[in-house]
Design a protein around this nucleic acid. Structure first.
Lengths: 229, 229
DNA sequence: CGCTGTCTTGAAGCGTTTCAACACAAGTGG
DNA sequence: CCACTTGTGTTGAAACGCTTCAAGACAGCG
């Protein structure tokens, strides 16, 4: 089902590696060296990349496509942890310990992933500390985001969480946003249910803050108002 | 109120730096070098180390004492993000960007903190990549914990969150645990209210899972039972 | 086109919050 | 050392927000 190709047999990998933000400040020669250690795998939409409980010491880097990381609780409730877009990576804990995945990773669309083994990456990091700094930057950013999400779940109402999420989706200039996921997944990410998301969005629309235009399309009418909720 | 001392004027700093897990694999000579860049500050119980909104590019390492990091929402609700014990650090985002604190840091007891400026630390990391790996390990651990906490807030009931928290407080051997914080702070950490914590703990006691012995002391009667909630 | 999954809307039920009152512990000053 | 003060912890009752279940509308895809 999945296609595995070894780095030095696939020139496409070079594009892959150089695509990744954490590597793209490096000169050609170093990139070649790193490529030697990289494998790549492709997944079709809906395929599971790893399961909770799987053991692994591999770093996964999304080359192209889109991946969702989610958790299943004992009671069967799904919680979306994050979405990976091209250049994003996951599995970093595996760098330091033979660890067990807590979450599931699933390809949302056809996706190509680059793999680096923990030991290989550790060698690379010791040799090229600037890469380590890049990864640290990415990790601290993600940590900050995760703690922010924790705080919101703990202290804000669903309406406020939705409003803040929408506000963060706004690109400069345009007032129109496209939701990066289905409302079902959005509900899971925000720690609520699809029904409640639907109701609160309808409320926000009634109150004149937003306009729902299509399945995943929303127009922000009053951004400042949203942020005051 | 707070006492600032420069590293090379205070021999106590050597103990400080070598205490810190991320540094304690280094040889003497490197420690000396790092010490040159370290400042230390002491805070009395209750003093605020930094405020949300403060600008900073400093890494804070707790030498001795205890610090709580918490967030205040617009509505005035407090959310405890984490507790720092000796050897723990915070402010890592500041390494890469002149950033603004999202949270407050407050000394829970008399506390001594070591400070390293972002640029200094960046130099150190490039020179001694093993330190970068240590910090990455710490960051990934914290990220995993934060995502776990997010997931629990999103999918588990207060009772389950309390049960899981208690289970994690259990040291091997003993069944008696000491809560690492007040019940008020625990409520804030778990995203609920002191009243609810009080009620759910009473429930757990009625159901025979635990025994409340003192203000911060709980005896676990049925650990397996707790984990099945 | 008809299937399947996502989205919406309604009504009932439940867990949690809120407010208020009281018990209790720790810390302070007379 | 006790009384006083302050903050934490407990318990009750009412109110609220969210979830759940069920049924129907809608969109995407074979």
């Amino acid at each position: 089902m999945t296609k595995i190709s070894c780095a030095h047999h696939d020139d496409g990998n070079k594009a892959c590696v150089s695509l990744v933000p954490i590597f793209n400040h490096l000169v050609e020669e170093k990139l070649d060296e790193i490529m030697q250690t990289v494998q790549s795998v492709t997944y079709k939409k809906g395929e599971v990349i790893y399961h909770a409980g799987d053991q692994s010491n591999t770093l996964y880097i999304v080359n192209h496509g889109r991946v969702k990381i989610y958790h299943l609780s004992e009671s069967g409730k799904e919680q979306l942890v994050r979405i990976l877009n091209p250049g994003d990576f996951t599995g970093e804990l595996a760098l330091f310990q033979q660890s067990i995945h807590e979450n599931f990773a699933e390809a949302l669309i056809d996706t190509k992933i680059c793999l680096i083994q923990g030991e290989d990456l550790q060698d690379i990091l010791l040799k090229y500390p600037t890469i380590a700094l890049q990864i640290m930057k990415e990790l601290t950013g993600r940590l900050e985001k995760s703690e922010q999400q924790t705080t919101r779940l703990a202290t804000e109402s669903v309406e406020t969480r939705i409003a803040l999420f929408l506000a963060e989706c706004v690109e400069d200039d345009t007032r129109k946003i496209e939701l990066p996921m289905s409302k079902k997944d959005l509900a899971s990410y925000l720690g609520t249910t699809p029904e409640t998301v639907s109701r609160r969005l309808a409320d926000l629309e009634d109150q004149g803050y937003i306009l729902q235009t299509g399945q995943r399309h929303i127009e922000i009418i009053d951004l400042d108002g949203l942020l005051l909720l």
